[in-house]
């Protein structure tokens, strides 16, 4: 049994929130570089250049990459041999978010859904807890902007729709989203499980190193096929036309019921921010 104090969790989350919003990972930057080399559209080239310059401007001038520093989505993988002490875990997570958004001068975007009154400190976070084997606590912070979140969709397909139905739904979602989710995008796709499981898989797939294929060859093949089809739409960077509409497609699957085929598509903009730590 390993003891982890909530104070360590607060500190870790504070740091991860800032790190995620200020430093885009090299995985995404490399994909943007490659896309820039291949892009043919003059508008596309111009936009991709600006996005690459933005990454440098963010690092050099110490500014968040994007003003939509998102709603904080936190994935906690808690080893079953971990004992958390010193206070409430949920409170600790929110305190970390509160401090991170304040210290990092990040935008407070969280509000009551009906009254629309801002909570003022970007809490509460959306927290996903998973109990796993071992004695470690793995924390992933993924601030999610809503330009892209708003364009995400979920459907309950019929088993007869099959893989073709999945492809149609994904492509249709991307085409309907058009310029709005700040393409080039990264897609997280969850297939199977139940309604909420598919959505969870889609969100979690976005944590994967950008462009890294699913370990199962048939799923990796579907990822590549969809990436190609999405880039053939011509939507392009910011929807102004071009070869780069998506940088990567990440699919995760889970067994489902014999009567169903849930599919969730979570759209992520090019500011695919996430930061991880293990305690």
């Amino acid at each position: 049994m390993k003891e982890i104090r909530v104070s360590a969790i607060i500190q870790a989350i504070e740091k991860l929130c800032i790190q995620a919003c200020y430093n885009l990972g090299d995985d995404v930057k490399n994909l943007l570089d490659t896309a820039r080399e291949r892009e043919e559209s003059p508008f596309g080239i111009r936009i991709l250049d600006q996005l690459l310059e933005n990454i440098n401007a963010s690092r050099e001038n110490q500014l968040p990459l994007c003003q939509d520093t998102g709603m904080a989505v936190i994935f906690m993988e808690i080893g079953q041999d971990v004992h958390i002490t010193g206070g409430s875990l949920q409170e600790a997570v929110n305190e970390g978010v509160r401090r991170g958004y304040q210290k990092g001068y990040m935008r407070r975007s969280v509000l009551d859904p009906l009254k629309r009154t801002n909570t003022g400190d970007n809490t509460p976070a959306v927290i996903h807890y998973e109990i796993v084997e071992g004695d470690q606590l793995k924390i992933a912070v993924a601030p999610k902007g809503f330009g892209s979140e708003n364009m995400s969709r979920l459907t309950m397909l019929k088993p007869s729709d099959g893989v073709e139905g999945i492809k149609r739904f994904v492509l249709d979602t991307v085409i309907q989203a058009g310029a709005n989710p700040c393409p080039p995008i990264i897609l997280g796709i969850g297939i199977g499980g139940t309604m909420e499981k598919a959505a969870f898989l889609a969100k979690k797939a976005l944590l994967r190193e950008a462009g890294k294929p699913n370990p199962k060859p048939e799923i990796a093949g579907l990822e590549q096929e969809l990436l190609q089809a999405i880039n053939n739409t011509g939507i392009g960077p910011q929807g102004l036309g071009g070869r780069t509409t998506a940088l990567a497609v990440h699919i995760d699957t889970y067994p489902t019921h014999l009567a169903g085929l849930p599919v969730a598509v979570n759209i992520q903009c090019h500011a695919a921010r996430h930061a991880e730590a293990i305690l």
Partner: peptide
């Protein structure tokens, strides 16, 4: 007029 979505740090400059 369209600005580059996500280029918040660049535009701040």
């Amino acid at each position: 007029l369209a600005a580059a979505g996500g280029a918040g740090a660049l535009i701040a400059g």
